[in-house]
């Protein structure tokens, strides 16, 4: 992990870690609930990813700023307080400016509060590092999470509807696989993706 006075290359590594080496979904297996629940289509997955990036960046900034004041026994309580605040704000913004998407995502936006990625980054990075490192880490992790969600959602949406983002991709003869839009489709796609990532990692090492 890059220190307080991290230089460019270290910051770069911190950023890239979230995208692949420490990808929250494929490598750390965190945030499984939204990963399975909101990846039936790309649009809600992208919205969820953006919400998580917003909450991650804001909570990491706050935790990083107050890291020297934190009492060990109040640490988790303070993290949760900060996270819950930013999740509520994200939820209100969605309801105000993206009401249809807010309805599609339903309870999964408020559930970001209990998303392990956010509390994990607050504990592992923001509570030990300065603001710059914390922001870079949050953006990297958030982007890694968002990209993963979009890839999963892309596969599921394509196979369940033959379309991606309302654009017809599959040929007319393609018969949509309804199961891919259901929970079973989420588990199968995630399992296959995890297997693929493990094979790639193994071969690379």
């Amino acid at each position: 992990m890059a220190s307080d006075k991290a230089k460019g290359p270290e910051l770069g590594q911190t950023f890239i870690a979230g995208l692949w080496k420490e990808n929250p979904v494929f490598r750390l297996l965190l945030g499984m609930c939204p990963t399975l629940a909101v990846t039936a289509a790309v649009r809600p997955a992208l919205t969820m990813g953006c919400c998580v990036i917003f909450v991650l960046v804001c909570s990491n900034i706050v935790v990083s700023l107050m890291r020297n004041l934190l009492k060990p026994h109040l640490r988790i309580l303070m993290f949760t307080l900060a996270i819950a605040t930013f999740v509520t704000i994200a939820d209100l913004f969605l309801k105000a400016f993206q009401p249809d998407m807010s309805e599609v995502l339903g309870p999964y936006v408020p559930l970001i509060i209990v998303n392990c990625i956010i509390i994990c980054r607050a504990e592992a990075c923001a509570s030990k590092n300065g603001m710059v490192v914390s922001i870079i880490d949050a953006v990297g992790m958030g982007l890694g999470f968002t990209l993963t969600l979009c890839v999963l959602a892309g596969v599921r949406e394509l196979l369940s509807t033959g379309m991606i983002l309302d654009t017809k991709v599959m040929p007319e003869a393609f018969v949509p696989w309804a199961a891919m839009s259901m929970p079973v489709g989420a588990f199968i796609t995630l399992g296959l993706m995890l297997g693929l990532v493990n094979i790639i990692t193994k071969e690379a090492s």
Partner: peptide, 11 residues
């Protein structure tokens, strides 16, 4: 608990 009280008020 001052930090918790102040933060709760602020948030």
């Amino acid at each position: 608990s001052w930090l918790l009280i102040v933060s709760a008020f602020f948030f």
